[in-house]
Design a protein around this nucleic acid. Structure first.
Length: 826
DNA sequence: CTAGGGTTAG
C-alpha cells in the first residue's frame, strides 16, 4: 500500500446524514456542518489539574435533552464509593446521549476535586473524547491515561484504540495496539474493523491472519464479520473461502449475521453459486428460514450481479413462503423494478407497502421516485416528491436526476435552484445531474455557475464531475474549456476520454478527435461503444473510408458488432464515406434494428440519389411495423428534392401529416422549399415559406435564393434576399449569391455595390478546398492552386475529362467564374 | 466498564 491517507472516520449518525460520501470511486468527503457545532466557548472552570494537562472546555448546550439530569458536584472531603459511582454514572449518561462535552466537564470538575486513584469511568470518558472526533484532544486523554498509570487496564487501552480509529489516525491506533501487552479479542476486533471501515481491507485481513496465528485469542463472530466485509471490499474470494471454512469449523455458521455476511461476500466477489449454497443451507434450518434480512441479502446479491430475474423470482418465493418483507426488501425490489423497467410490479409494490405494514420513509420514497422516473413516469415521481414528508438531499438529487434523464432539463435546473435557495448543500451526485441538464440544454452560463459551485464545494477534481464538466463545456461549444478541464484531471477513465472525443467530434475538430482517440489507447484506456460511435461519426465527416473499415474490423474482432448503436454508426459512416453497398450489407445482416437503423439506411440511400431503393426501404420499414418519425421524413423529402421528384415529395409531405400525424417542422419546410425551388416552382416555394406556422430562418430563405439563381428569377431573388438580410445581413455567402444573380442578369452596378459592401464589412471568403488520402498521404487542393507536385498531370487529366464529358452532352455554365480575380486576391 | 454492520435509497 503506497499511500495510506486515513479518511475521516465514522461521524455520529446525526452528522452522517449531513455528510456526503460518493461511491467508492469518488473520494470526495466533506463535513457539511456549520462551524458552530464544535465551537467551545472559553472555559468558565479551568481547574488546576486540568489546565496543567491542557484540557479545557465549556458546556456548549443551553438546553439539555429531557430526562438527563444536570450534574452538580457536591462532594464531601473524602471521596466515597457513592461519589465515584455518581460521577461514573453521569459520565456514562452524558456520553451515551451524545453530550460529550458535558461528560468531559464532569471529569474536569472531578479532577479539580480529587487526585484519582481508582477511575472506573475512564472507558466511558474516553468514548466521550472519541465523540469529539478531534485527534489532538484525543491524544490529551491518552496522556492522562499514561500519567495515572491506567494503560494496563485492557478496557482503557481498547477504548483509546477505538478513539484513534474514530479520529482517523490509524498510525496512532497501530502504535498503541503494538504496545498493549494483554491484548484481548476486543483489541483485535477493534483493529480489524478499524481497517475494514477505513477501506483498508488488506490490512484488515493481515490483522485477522495475525490474530489466528498468534496464540491466546481465537477470532470470534465479530472478527469474522469484519474480515468477511474486507474480503467483499477487495473482492478476495480466496480469503473469503478461508474465513468461511474457519466459520464452519468453529460452529459459527448458525449465526444469522455471519450467514448474511457470507452471502454478501460471495455475491460481491461475483460467486453467486457459493452464495446460493450458503443461502440454501440457511433455508433448511427452520428456525432461521424466516429471517427477512438474509432473504434481503440474497435478493440484493442477485441485483448487485445484474441477475434481475433471479432476484425477482426469489422475492416471489419469499412472499409465497410467507416471509414478511421489510422496508429494506421493498427498497431493493424497487431498485430491481427500475432495472427491469417494470412499472407494473413497481406500482404493485407501491400499493402493497401499507399492506406489508410498512411506513413510508425517505429511502422507500426515493427508490420509488427513482423507479417511476427510470420507467419514464416522471409525473408519478414528482407526485411522490411533492407529497413526501421525508424529503432530504438524496431525494432532491433523485428528483433532479429523474428530470434530467427524462428530457426535462429545465425542470431539473428549476428544482436545483429551488433546492439551493432553500439552503440545500450541493453534493457531487446531484451536481452531476445538473451538469448533464446544462449540457443537454447547451446552457454554458449555468454550466459555468455549476462549475464554480464544484470548486467552492471542493469536488471539482472528482473523476465523475471532471468528465461531466468536460462534456458540458464541449456540448456548449467551448472546446478550450473542455480541454483545460480534461487536461487538469488527475485520473482519466473511458468516460472522461469519451467526453473529450465526442466533444471534438461534435464541434468539427475531426483531427483532434482522432488524435485523442489514439492518445487514450496509448494511455491504455480501452475505448468502448460510445468512443467508437463518436469516432465513426468523425470517419463519416472526413469520408475516411479506410479508418472506417479498420474500426469495423476491430469491432468484429471484439464482438461489438451486435450493438445497435455501433451498427447504426457503421451504416451511417459507410453511407457518408460513399460506400453504400457496405452499408446495405450491414443493414441487411444485423440482428437488431431500431428506428435509427432504418433512418440511417433510408437517408444513406437518399444521399446517394437512389430514391426508388429508398422508397422501397421505406415500405419495408412500415411493413416491419417501425414508426417513421420526423427524421425519416426529412431524409425522404431531402432525397426527393435532390432527385427532382416533385410529385413524390408532395405525396410524402402530405402523408407525413395525414397518415403519421407528424407536424411538419422547419426542417421539413426547408426540404419542401428546396424541392419546389429546384424544380422551378418558385411561387409555390415562396408561398410555402409565407404560409408555414413556424418562423423562417436564414437557411430556408437562402435555399429559395439559390433556386432563384438556378432559374434566373431576379425579382423573386430580391424578395428572398430582402427577407433573408432582415434576419441576418452578415451572411456573406448569400450576399455573393445575390451578386451572382445580378451578374447573370447583367446588372453590374448592383454587383459592384454588393461586393464593395461585403469588402467594407471586412469579410473574406475562404476558398473552397478539397482533399483526398492516398496511402496515408493527404493531398489538398484549392481552386486555381498549382502547388501540388503532380499538378501538371492533374490538370492535363482534367482537360481530357472535360472534353469527354462535353462529348457526352454536358454544357458547362461559365458565367459565375467572373468573380474569380476578386477571390484569388483575397 | 471496552470492540460490535445482517440487508436498503439518488
Amino acid at each position: 500500500m503506497a499511500s495510506l491517507t486515513p479518511p475521516n472516520l465514522s461521524l455520529t449518525s446525526e452528522l452522517r446524514q449531513e455528510q456526503f460520501c460518493l461511491t467508492s470511486k469518488c473520494k470526495v468527503c466533506f463535513n457539511a456542518l456549520g462551524p458552530s457545532h464544535l465551537n467551545w466557548k472559553p472555559s468558565s472552570l479551568p481547574t488546576s489539574t486540568a489546565s496543567a494537562l491542557h484540557i479545557s472546555c465549556s458546556q456548549g448546550y443551553e438546553v439539555r435533552p429531557t430526562g438527563i439530569p444536570a450534574f452538580s458536584m457536591n462532594l464531601s472531603d473524602t471521596v466515597s464509593d457513592s461519589d465515584v459511582s455518581y460521577v461514573t454514572n453521569m459520565i456514562r449518561e452524558y456520553t451515551t446521549n451524545g453530550l460529550f462535552e458535558d461528560a468531559i466537564v464532569v471529569y474536569l470538575e472531578w479532577l479539580n476535586y480529587s487526585v484519582p486513584t481508582q477511575l472506573p469511568f475512564f472507558p466511558s470518558l474516553i468514548k466521550a473524547f472519541a465523540g469529539l472526533l478531534d485527534l489532538r484532544t484525543g491524544r490529551q486523554i491518552h496522556g492522562h491515561v499514561l500519567k495515572f498509570g491506567l494503560f494496563t487496564d485492557v478496557y482503557v487501552a481498547n477504548s483509546l484504540l477505538a478513539l484513534y480509529w474514530k479520529c482517523g489516525s490509524f498510525e496512532d491506533a497501530l502504535q498503541l495496539f503494538e504496545n498493549i501487552l494483554n491484548r484481548d479479542s476486543v483489541s483485535w476486533n477493534t483493529m480489524i474493523s478499524g481497517f475494514d471501515q477505513s477501506m483498508l481491507p488488506l490490512q484488515a485481513l493481515m490483522m485477522f491472519r495475525r490474530m489466528v496465528q498468534e496464540l491466546g485469542v481465537i477470532p470470534n463472530r465479530v472478527s469474522c464479520l469484519s474480515a468477511l466485509s474486507s474480503c467483499s471490499s477487495c473482492g478476495s474470494l480466496v480469503h473469503g473461502k478461508e474465513i468461511h471454512a474457519f466459520v464452519t469449523k468453529n460452529g459459527l455458521d448458525l449465526d444469522p449475521s455471519l450467514v448474511n455476511e457470507l452471502i454478501g461476500m460471495y455475491t460481491k466477489c461475483g460467486h453467486l453459486r457459493n452464495a446460493e449454497q450458503v443461502f440454501g443451507i440457511f433455508l433448511e434450518r427452520e428456525s432461521l428460514s424466516e429471517n427477512t434480512v438474509v432473504w434481503n441479502a440474497m435478493i440484493s446479491g442477485y441485483v448487485f450481479n445484474g441477475c434481475f430475474l433471479d432476484a425477482f423470482t426469489l422475492f416471489q418465493k419469499m412472499l409465497v413462503l410467507g416471509v414478511k418483507p421489510d422496508s429494506s426488501t421493498i427498497v431493493t425490489v424497487l431498485v430491481l423494478c427500475s432495472h427491469l423497467l417494470d412499472i407494473k410490479v413497481g406500482r404493485q409494490i407501491h400499493g402493497h407497502i401499507v399492506r406489508f405494514g410498512l411506513k413510508l420513509d425517505a429511502r422507500i420514497e426515493t427508490a420509488m421516485l427513482d423507479m417511476y422516473c427510470k420507467c419514464g413516469e416522471i409525473q408519478d415521481g414528482l407526485n411522490i416528491f411533492e407529497r413526501s414528508s421525508n424529503v432530504n438531499f438524496v431525494m432532491w438529487g433523485a428528483m433532479i436526476a429523474g428530470c434530467a434523464q427524462n428530457g426535462c432539463s429545465r425542470k431539473a435546473l428549476e428544482l436545483f435552484s429551488k433546492f439551493m435557495v432553500e439552503g440545500g448543500l450541493a453534493d457531487p451526485i446531484t451536481v452531476l445531474a445538473v451538469l448533464r441538464a446544462c449540457s443537454s440544454l447547451t446552457l454554458n452560463l449555468n454550466g459555468m455557475e455549476t462549475h464554480g459551485l464544484t470548486i467552492k464545494m471542493g469536488f471539482s477534481s472528482d473523476v465523475f464531475i471532471g468528465a461531466a464538466l468536460t462534456d458540458m463545456y464541449a456540448k456548449c461549444g467551448d472546446i478550450e474549456s473542455a480541454q483545460r478541464i480534461f487536461r487538469g484531471l488527475s485520473e482519466r477513465d473511458v468516460i472522461s476520454w469519451n467526453a473529450l472525443v465526442s466533444g471534438y467530434a461534435q464541434n468539427d475538430y475531426a483531427d483532434e478527435a482522432l488524435k485523442a482517440f489514439h492518445e487514450m489507447q496509448y494511455e491504455l484506456v480501452r475505448p468502448n461503444t460510445v468512443t467508437f460511435a463518436s469516432i465513426l461519426s468523425v470517419c463519416a465527416r472526413l469520408s475516411a473510408l479506410i479508418l472506417c473499415k479498420q474500426i469495423h474490423c476491430y469491432l468484429i474482432r471484439n464482438r461489438f458488432e451486435a450493438n445497435v448503436l455501433l451498427s447504426n454508426s457503421l451504416i451511417s459512416a459507410y453511407s457518408k464515406c460513399g460506400n453504400i453497398k457496405s452499408a446495405l450489407i450491414l443493414f441487411n445482416g444485423v440482428s437488431e434494428r431500431n428506428e435509427i437503423s432504418w433512418n440511417s439506411m433510408i437517408s444513406g440511400l437518399g444521399m446517394h440519389g437512389l430514391v426508388d431503393d429508398m422508397l422501397a426501404l421505406f415500405d419495408r420499414m412500415k411493413a416491419a411495423e417501425m414508426k417513421p418519425d420526423h427524421v425519416t421524413f426529412t431524409a425522404i423529402l431531402s432525397a426527393c428534392g435532390h432527385a427532382g421528384r416533385v410529385d413524390e415529395g408532395w405525396r410524402q409531405f402530405r402523408s407525413m401529416v395525414k397518415d403519421y400525424n407528424i407536424k411538419p417542422e422547419l426542417e421539413h419546410y426547408t426540404c419542401m422549399v428546396d424541392l419546389l425551388g429546384r424544380a422551378g416552382h418558385l411561387d409555390q416555394a415562396l408561398n410555402m415559406i409565407l404560409g408555414m406556422p413556424c418562423q423562417p430562418d436564414g437557411q430556408i430563405w437562402g435555399s429559395l435564393l439559390a433556386s432563384c439563381k438556378i432559374h434566373c428569377n431576379e425579382e423573386m431573388a430580391e424578395r428572398a434576399a430582402d427577407y433573408l438580410f432582415k434576419l441576418d445581413s452578415s451572411r456573406m455567402g448569400y450576399q455573393i449569391l445575390l451578386s451572382n444573380i445580378y451578374e447573370d442578369s447583367g446588372k453590374l452596378d448592383n454587383v459592384t455595390m454588393i461586393r464593395t459592401a461585403v469588402k467594407d464589412m471586412g469579410f473574406k471568403k475562404k476558398p473552397g478546398c478539397s482533399w483526398l488520402e492516398v496511402d496515408h498521404n493527404l493531398h489538398v487542393f484549392v481552386a486555381n492552386d498549382r502547388s501540388h507536385y503532380q499538378s501538371e498531370q492533374i490538370y492535363a487529366t482534367l482537360e481530357i475529362l472535360t472534353e469527354e464529358i462535353k462529348g457526352a452532352g454536358y454544357i458547362p455554365q461559365l458565367y459565375p467564374v467572373i468573380i474569380k480575380h476578386d477571390e484569388a486576391s483575397g
